[in-house]
Simulated assay, not measured.
Amino acid sequence: MFGTEIHWTTFFYLLIDTVIVLFAFYQSRKLNRNSLKRFLYLGLLFIAYNASGGFLPTESFPGPLIIQYIITYGVAITLCVYIVYYLYKEYDFVVLAFRSSIRNLAIVAFGGFIILYLIPYFFTTSLNTARLLYTVPISIVAFIFLGIFYKRISHPKNPNSFIVRRNKLSIISVTAIALLPICTVIGDYQWITFTIMNIAFYAISVIEVDRHLFFLENKNKLYEVFLFNKGRTEAINESEVINGNLTRREIEIAVSILSKLSYKRIAEDLYIAESTVSKHASNIFKKTGVKNRTQFTKRFDSK
């Protein structure tokens, strides 16, 4: 299309992603939520991925061909790492046993690109050789990570339908990341590669829509919490109920606490550690001016 390498499917995804990002930008200006800003960054990375991978390489680009591949691979690697970071930050998906897992994942991805792709290319001047040397071992690492991720969040204890949906969609997103190196090995088939990767973005978008609906469904339990937290006595609209000082993860924990669930049960429902629930609960109590769970439920229990 347009005298470039971009396939019509990639251009279509580019348009869809742009619409989603513009809508998210409008919502972020309206609600001023940090989590929406993170979603915006994610969407912008997908736009950059579709644009760079779709339009490059091109003969009209100045400089050596390898520069174009550095750009496309760099954007793709950044996107994959950010998806994992997003899942970690938004949903507490700590996949590996150490807190530096995101940083180490980035080091492996970018370090591997330098050692296994760029250095072999400068010695052989063969893009195919460099691509194979990089993508094959990265594929193995990616599927090991996928296996750990699946095992981490797919246990069946006390299934909560909202969380189960989220986890299944998150697995789809991480699977797309794991498949990207394989798609690169297979060859330059944009309609396959970009379809798989954009499914990851759409899965996360569905998670965010589902989470917003979950908040609306449980707004009655949180009305008094946000009313107190904002120091108001007048009525507040739905967007303000959702837009309190609590993070969206803290809102989920608050809903569970007001539903009389134990920390252990909340941890099992949300597929996170009980200590993580306790940490979020402490932040909730601090922000709402109470000392403990008992005071919280007495003050904010729905009538």
Rank of each mutant, 00 (worst) to 15 (best):
L36D: 03
I71M: 08
H212N: 07
L169K: 10
V225N: 06
M197Q: 13
S154D: 09
L180M: 11
K89A: 15
L105C: 05
V277L: 07
A176T: 04
T78G: 15
K291Y: 09
L227M: 14
Y41V: 00
Y134N: 05
F300D: 00
L258N: 06
I148W: 02
S256T: 07
A273W: 14
K291I: 09
Q295Y: 13
N128A: 15
E5L: 04
R211H: 11
A48N: 06
A24Y: 09
L42K: 00
F23Y: 05
V277F: 06
K151C: 04
L116D: 00
F162L: 00
M1F: 15
I236P: 04
I67W: 11
R232C: 10
L222H: 01
F145C: 08
D17E: 12
A235F: 14
I272H: 00
R29E: 11
N160C: 10
S259G: 03
V164Y: 10
V95R: 05
Y82S: 07
D17K: 08
S239E: 13
N245C: 04
M197D: 10
K37S: 11
R211D: 14
N158L: 08
K219Q: 15
N104K: 09
L216R: 15
W8Q: 06
P120R: 04
K168Q: 10
P62W: 09
G231A: 12
S170G: 14
G147M: 07
S101Y: 12
T135V: 05
F123K: 06
M197T: 09
N243F: 01
F143P: 01
K260L: 13
V141R: 04
V255E: 07
V19Y: 10
A267E: 02
R103D: 07
K219R: 13
T175I: 07
I266R: 03
K287T: 03
I242Y: 12
F2G: 04
R232W: 12
T233G: 10
Y88I: 00
Y121A: 02
A24K: 05
R248I: 08
H280I: 00
F214L: 06
S126I: 05
G111K: 02
A254I: 00
A106K: 02
F122G: 10
K230Q: 13
L179A: 04
N283Q: 15
E238D: 13
L169G: 01
E234P: 01
N32D: 13
K260P: 01
N104H: 14
T4F: 08
N198Q: 07
L213G: 01
S205K: 03
V255Q: 04
M1I: 08
V277S: 05
W8M: 10
V136W: 15
A178K: 03
S259Y: 01
H7N: 14
R293G: 05
L40V: 02
